[in-house]
Amino acid sequence: MGNKEILRQRAEELAAKVNGEVEEQNGVLVLKVKGAYLSETLSTAKSFPDVPCDFLHDLTALDLKDHFEVVYQLSSLHGPQRLRVKGTVDREHPVVNSVTRLWRGANFLEREAYDMFGIEFKGHPNLKRIYLWDDFEGYPLRKDYVTESLEERSVVLPLKKGE
């Protein structure tokens, strides 16, 4: 069996265990699960026998009108397997488990998702804003965020102590 078929088989087994679904988008397998099952899904995918998806390329979020989706792009440095894992999260209280204990490189990525969308990652060592200043109000990449007018943006922020 080729690499792709083994991966699809494992992904479908995993999907059956966590009530997810598998589809294919432009040549890549996508595994959609609910947010609560994300850490289990990701740790299993990281240690798939024969086709481990152990390299995290990217961690981001999407704002679909009524819910968020946290998207993980996985692949491997030692094999051609590629997998995309998406976890649906509630819009009112977006909370997901952090994956920093699986991949240390997810640290900055989760801070960025928190900064842009407001998704909280439980278990993250230092969940603060990374791109915007600490007093910024709102989460810019949400679809209902309104950019402030030119006049409001022309006001220079006061310098805080320690900057």
């Binding site: 791109y131 915007l132 810019p140 965020y145 950019t147 402030e148 030119l150 943006r153 022309s154 220079v156």
Partner: peptide, 14 residues
């Protein structure tokens, strides 16, 4: 980038 949320419209405001 003028209509971005993080931009100052010109440095002559500073």
């Amino acid at each position: 980038f003028i209509d971005s949320y993080a931009m100052i419209p010109g440095v002559d405001k500073v």
